[in-house]
Each structure stands twice: as C-alpha cells, then as structure tokens.
Design a protein around this nucleic acid. Sequence first.
DNA 1: GCGACAG
DNA 2: ATCTTGTCGC
Length: 241
Amino acid sequence: MTEPRSQPRADLQRWDGSTADARAIQTQLADKVVLADEFGPLKRIAGVDVGFEDGGMITRAAVVLLDAETLEPLAQALARIPTCMPYIPGLLSFRELPAVLQALDSLGQTPDLIFSDGHGIAHPRGLGIAAHLGVVTGLPTIGVAKKILIGKHTALGEQRGEQVDLLDKGGKVIGTVLRSKDRVRPLIISPGNRVSLETAPQLVMRYVTRYRLPEPTRLADRLASRRDEKRGGPQQSMELQ
DNA sequence: GCGACAG
DNA sequence: ATCTTGTCGC
C-alpha cells in the first residue's frame, strides 16, 4: 500500500516572492485553520525545528518522531537546503517551512500530532509557522514558542503548570502563557491546526518531563541545532546523511 | 511618525 | 537563529 503522499508545497509554490504576497497568502490560509480538537488516538507524535549552518547560508530542518506513550524516539529525519530568504518577523514560515516539509517527507511516517517551534494562531494574521504547517499538511499541530510575537497577558504564577491566557488587542484569546517548570521563563502555546485553545497547553504539559521544552520540541531542537554532536559524549553518534 | 518584532 | 567560556544559582 502506498501512503497518500502529500503535495505540501502547493501554497508556497504559488508565492510570487514578495512580502506583500506572503502576507496575503497568510490571511487567506488563516481561514482554513481548524480550532477544534480533531485528532485521533495519539500513538506517534513529532517535534520539528530549524537550525542554520554556514552562518545562515544553509537551512537545516529536523523532525523527530516519538512514541507518545514512552516518549522513546522512533525515527528522525534531516533536510538541508539553501536558505531562501532572511528572517522577517511575521513571515517565519516562508523562510523555514520548505525545509520542514522536506524533512517531514523523508521521515516516511505520518505523525498523529506535530509540535512546532514558533507560534500557531498567535500571529498578526493568525497564521504562524505551526498553523501554516498544519494547514498545508492537514495534520494536527501545536505552536511552542519561547517569546511573544503579539498579544498581552496578566501576571503568571511561578509554579509548574500555571497558565494565563494570551490576548490580542481586541481581548480575544489567541494562546496560553504556560509555566512548564518551576521558576523558568514561560512558554507561549497556541494551536496550529485541529487542536483547541484549551487542549493545546494540556498536550504540551503531557509531554514535558524534566526540561522546559516538551520532549518532541526539545529533541528536534537538539538535532536541528546540532547540540547533540557538540556536547561531550564518549561515543559520537552515527552519521546522518 | 515611533516602537515592536516567533526564529 | 547564530557567534561563544565560564559561571552563578536551584
């Protein structure tokens, strides 16, 4: 049997390269975001993140698939492609998504849920990279960011698990400011696709162990930024591509 | 017009 | 994101 291979590039390929068109595409795709819990049993979850090599010349995307029950890594994939554009706040997905989609494609398996670095709907036009990834792949996604892009919130408790709503200018809830560990800077959680505002932070906490970041994100982060091979380990890991 | 601004 | 050692604190 052949898995229904996606044609994820579609919406990005229609991009004319201008920032104006990128914003127009975001506004259009934002309507396709599903903010309801539309995901089945979570068996295999994935984390995706992007890093750079050669001072930014090469974009390096990493995907790590984990067993949702044991959190053991099941598979991982890397994609390295020439960087296509500079970082522009609000347009992150146009810079990083091509590499992320390629990495997901070479993974050869479809995750039941994807944790993406960056924001979901907590974005100027409601389509951060996590939401963009979710709409383009049709998969459930959650955005896990370390800093706020837009929105405000009230004071947050210091204990692990404490959370407050992230509100946009109109007072509408667009995400959750979540303290994943005692006395650490909070994470900014927002739905990407097929996950509700209420469930997103719950799922993040479900996969947080002893670190600030949930395991899928943390492992993808290490692979994308090559922290694993840099850090001192008696045995060097095997080569990846 | 002046800041703010994921990674 | 990335360039980078040791160091202060839980």
